[in-house]
Simulated scan of single mutants.
Amino acid sequence: MSSQVRGGTRWKRFALVMVPSVVATAAVGVGLAQGALAASFAVSGQSFKVSTDRLVGEDFVQYGSVAVGTDLEGKKAAHPVAVSGFSKATITNMCQSVVTPDLPFGLGSVSLELNAGTDPKNPVVATNLYLDVAQLDADAYFEDIDIGVAAGSMGKPGIQTGTEKAVNPNGFAQRARLATLTGVEQTAWATTAGTFKLSDLKLRLHKGVEECF
């Protein structure tokens, strides 16, 4: 799934849609998680890409859900997602990017790129982390994994608070005490966390299409 969304994007829309989809999601606006605020926001009309060298997550859960929002043309949209949850995760060399195409004034496409945790000794750290994923490529290693449990019986961190109506509690899910993902490349619609520490954060705008992968 491409993170580019075609259409007559306006400069004001670039400011209101593109920037929050990366900055607010990855930095400040991620105080939405189990035990914090309910994740009741509508997703933006743009998916985004995330890559990382290594993600180590405790209390891994995964289940199906639906991310609901509005596309860039103002129409309601619903996206099936695989939600991956962790009670705690450390992330090394994280990159997050989103592209807004067809900007006016001859700008064409503009890419927003965020990098953090490039030093393995000082990685990104998140608690109560939930990722609404549309596509994922990685090498995965699990410890104490259970496949085929009911979504409503996963144990901690459980179904994300505020999204219960979008999840079948009797539907397929899996869980593991520990999950290690390496060489991660994913396309996502939303990320939420109780806390999100972004070490050595760098944010850059690029003219043209420059994505994490």
Rank of each mutant, 00 (worst) to 15 (best):
L205D: 01
D102M: 13
A89T: 10
A36R: 15
R10T: 14
V43F: 09
A15W: 09
K197H: 07
T191M: 12
A24L: 10
G31H: 10
F86V: 04
V43R: 14
A176E: 09
A82C: 06
R54G: 07
S84A: 12
F48T: 11
W11I: 09
L203D: 00
K197Q: 10
A126E: 10
M1P: 06
L203K: 01
S84C: 08
V125P: 04
G208E: 03
T182K: 04
R204A: 09
R54M: 11
Q4A: 14
S111V: 15
D200Y: 00
N115M: 09
V68E: 12
V167G: 00
G208W: 05
P20F: 07
A26H: 09
D139Q: 10
K156D: 03
G108Y: 12
S111F: 15
V61N: 09
G74S: 02
A193Y: 08
A176R: 06
V19W: 03
A176D: 09
G117V: 07
A134I: 08
V98Y: 04
W11E: 04
F142A: 13
R175G: 04
V28L: 14
M154K: 00
A77S: 08
G7I: 05
G183K: 03
A140P: 03
R177P: 03
V5P: 02
V56C: 01
G155Y: 08
E164R: 02
T161I: 08
A82F: 03
E73I: 00
H79M: 11
D146S: 11
L32R: 14
K12E: 10
G74F: 01
Q96F: 08
A134M: 09
L112M: 13
Q160W: 08
F60V: 05
Q4L: 14
V133Q: 10
T92A: 11
R177H: 09
L37M: 14
L198I: 02
V17I: 02
V99T: 15
K88F: 06
I159V: 14
G152I: 04
R13W: 08
P101I: 11
N122I: 07
A26D: 07
L131N: 14
A173V: 02
A188H: 05
P169K: 01
G57K: 06
V167S: 00
K165S: 14
K156S: 04
A150W: 00
V124M: 06
V167D: 00
G35P: 13
P104D: 12
V61W: 01
A138R: 04
D119V: 15
F172I: 00
R6L: 08
K197R: 07
G162Q: 03
E164C: 07
N122V: 12
K49A: 11
E143N: 14
A67F: 04
V23S: 05
T92C: 11
D59R: 10
D53K: 13
A33I: 13
V30Y: 12
S153R: 07
T195G: 11
P157S: 04
S3Q: 10
G74Q: 01
A82P: 01
S51G: 06
Y63W: 01
